[in-house]
Amino acid sequence: MNAQLAPAAVDTTSPLSVAGLRHSYPDGEVLRGVDLALAPGSVLGLIGRNGAGKSTLIRAMLGLLEPAAGEARVFGQPALRMDDQAKARLAYVPQQPEALGWLTATQLLDYVGRFYPGWDARFAGKTLERWKIPPNKLLAKLSPGERQRVDLIRALASQPELLVLDEPAAALDPVARRELLREVALRAGESGTTVLFSTHIVSDLERIASDIAFLHEGKLLLHCAADDTKERFARLWLPAAMSAAAPAAALSRRRHEDGSLSLVVERDERGQWPEASRLTGARVDALGLEDLFVEVAE
């Protein structure tokens, strides 16, 4: 429950961390004090609705955007002043894979590959072939799905220790999506690659994420292990007559037309649901990840 804590100090042991991150665009505040640190080797799924601030958070975490306040670090270095060694250990795939459209897929991989000491040219060539990407067609002329896959090959072939993917599956068909998830899980499992990926496809999270962070309206509402969510969070329903007894700390709160109240609540340190759940007529419903997302985001 990071958002409810005071801004934390930046975790210098984490491959990727931010503390007290704030940022605004002319039309309003996008990040409102985000603290987040990825554990080495973890696969963190960053989930949130469209416009929640996921892409802005990722860009700020990687030093591609100068935040209004707060600090981001990559492998212990300030993200805005990363050296070449830190950059060589990370790979990033942006949400819109539209860069360098004047190159062919082969040219792009050749170009980028020259900068990475650990570049796996064999993997790049083989994956290009396996994913049936026309190697000599200009990137500008490829379909969005094909371009996204070329960008994923670019990221994976650099053999990164930290892989950051911003909605990597958005333009992929189900087969390509499954292949991508398998590849990411493999990298995390076998090579210990730390992965941060943003998405709003809950099933992708359930498949590979070891941790989940939920960004809502610029705030990180929860950050926990993926397996814990079912145990840790639930929907508490209180009839109208008891709504006054609703706990103050709740991830979301929704009043129904009949006056009854639905809240998303969390177990306390002793593993207990809030006291109101023990009132007669109160009901605690288990929540799947998708239900939890919908309840909180609505």
Partner: peptide, 18 residues
């Protein structure tokens, strides 16, 4: 926009100090 070429260049190693 930071979504296109800058997203590649910003994290590309080997270009040296700022």
């Amino acid at each position: 926009t930071s979504q296109r070429e800058l997203a590649v260049l910003g994290v590309l190693p080997g270009l040296g100090t700022p």
